[in-house]
Nucleic acid binder design. Structure first.
Lengths: 203, 203
DNA sequence: ATCCGCTCATGACATTTGTCATCGGGAGTC
DNA sequence: GACTCCCGATGACAAATGTCATGAGCGGAT
C-alpha cells in the first residue's frame, strides 16, 4: 500500500515546518503540500488532492472548519481533521457538522498525531476524549438564531442603539433578545452572557 | 566552542516535540530540557542550567514572562526568550521589562529561530520587527494604576457593585474611574474600553 | 511654597439597560 | 383547528451606568 498523502495547514510556520519534518519520519506518511492560510489550504488541496488534510482551526482568511466545509463538496474523497490550541466545545460541534473526521488538541505528541492520521485515513473517526467530554457537558445552545446574532453583535461592546441599527431591529427588540439570552444563560447581564456563550462556543 | 544548551518550554506537546527535533538537527544547539508548564520550566532550568531558555508565552501555572522574571534572579546567566502565537504589544513590553532578550512570533521558521537563539546566546537582543512596530504604535498606557485595576475587574462583566466590593472602593468612585478610563481610551462605554485596552495589552 | 496629578469620595442628573406584560404574524406539529 | 415556538414590536417602570461638578488628602516636582 502506498503512503498516505497529507496536506498540512497552519499559519504558524514554526509548527508547520516542524510537524512536516516529524511526519516525514513516518514511512507511511507523506506531506505533499503545506499552507499558511485558509484559502491557500483550499487551493493546495484541490491541486494536490491529498488523502488527509490536517487543518489548524485558526488561520487567516478561512478557519479550519470553513476549509473543511469547502473540501467536503470540492474534494469529497479527502478526509479532513482539525488541530487546535483552544478546545472550545462549540468548535468541535461545528467541526463535526462540517464532516471533519478527526479533532485533536495540540497537546498530543507527534507520534500520537501520526497514529490518528492513519486512523482517519482508514475511514474511522477520532475525537480527543477530553474535548468530547467538555462538548457533551456544554450541551446544545439554548439560544435562538436571533438571540445568538444579537449577542454576537453585543460582544464588541456596542450599545443597544448600534446593535439595533446593524441588525435592523428596534431597540426594544434588541433589549428583549439580550434579556432573554442572558436569562437563558443564567448571566447577570449581557456581558457576562457574552463571556459564557464564548466559553461554550455558542457564539 | 561547545554547543548552546537550550531549555524548551511549551504546553503544546506537538510543538515542543517537533521543535526539539528540528533544533537537534543544528550542530551547535542542544536541547537539554523540556517543560510543559511554567513551574516545570522553572524547576528544569534550575536543575539543568541552560544557556538559553525558549519560553512559550502562554503556559499553565506561570506564563513565559513570569518564568523569565524568576530566572533573572534565580539563574542570571541564563538568557531568556519568548515565543508566542499572539503578539500583543503589552506582552512585548512586559517581556522586555522582565529582561527577556528575544521575542518572536511562532510564524517564523525553525531555521530562523535557530539563528535567533544563537544571536541571543551571543548576548544580543532580537525583537520581531513587526511586533516592535505594533508596540511602538500602541505607545504607553494612558491609564493610572487604579483605572487599570478597575478596568481589569470590569473585564469579567461584573456590575459596578461587585467591582466596588472587590477593589474596596465606593460605587461612585468606581464609576468615575471607569468613566475616565473609557474617555482616555476614546471608548463609548466600559466594555469597548476593556476591548481596546486588551488589544493594546494595557490590562 | 506652590502647583499638579492621583486617589477617593459625594451628590445630582441624564441616559442606558434590564425586566415585564402584551400584542400580532408566521411556521410547524399534533 | 388548536397549540407552541420564534420573530418583531411597543410601552412602562426600575435599576444600572455614564457624566459632571466639587471637594479633601497626599505626595512629588519646580
Amino acid at each position: 500500500m502506498s503512503a498516505v498523502r497529507v496536506l498540512l495547514a497552519d499559519d504558524e510556520h514554526l509548527i508547520r515546518g516542524a510537524l512536516a519534518a516529524l511526519l516525514a519520519l513516518e514511512d507511511d506518511l507523506e506531506v505533499v503540500a503545506e499552507a499558511a492560510t485558509g484559502p491557500e489550504a483550499l487551493a493546495m488541496a484541490l491541486q494536490h488532492r491529498p488523502d488527509v488534510a490536517v487543518l489548524d482551526l485558526q488561520m487567516p482568511g478561512l478557519d479550519g472548519v470553513a476549509v473543511a466545509t469547502s473540501l467536503r463538496t470540492g474534494l469529497p474523497d479527502c478526509k479532513t481533521m482539525i488541530v487546535t490550541s483552544h478546545g472550545l466545545p462549540g468548535h468541535l460541534k461545528r467541526a463535526l457538522e462540517a464532516g471533519v473526521r478527526g479533532f485533536v488538541p495540540k497537546t498530543v505528541s507527534a507520534q500520537r498525531l501520526a497514529e490518528i492520521i492513519r486512523t482517519v485515513c482508514a475511514g474511522n473517526r477520532y475525537v480527543d476524549p477530553e474535548l468530547a467530554a467538555d462538548a457533551i457537558a456544554a450541551g446544545d445552545s439554548p439560544l435562538t438564531a436571533r438571540e445568538a446574532e444579537v449577542l454576537e453583535l453585543a460582544a464588541h461592546g456596542a450599545p443597544v442603539a448600534e446593535i439595533a441599527e446593524r441588525a435592523a431591529l428596534s431597540r426594544g427588540t434588541v433589549r428583549n433578545y439580550l434579556s432573554s439570552a442572558a436569562s437563558k444563560l443564567g448571566a447577570e447581564n449581557r456581558h457576562a452572557a457574552v463571556r459564557l456563550a464564548r466559553e461554550r462556543g455558542w457564539v
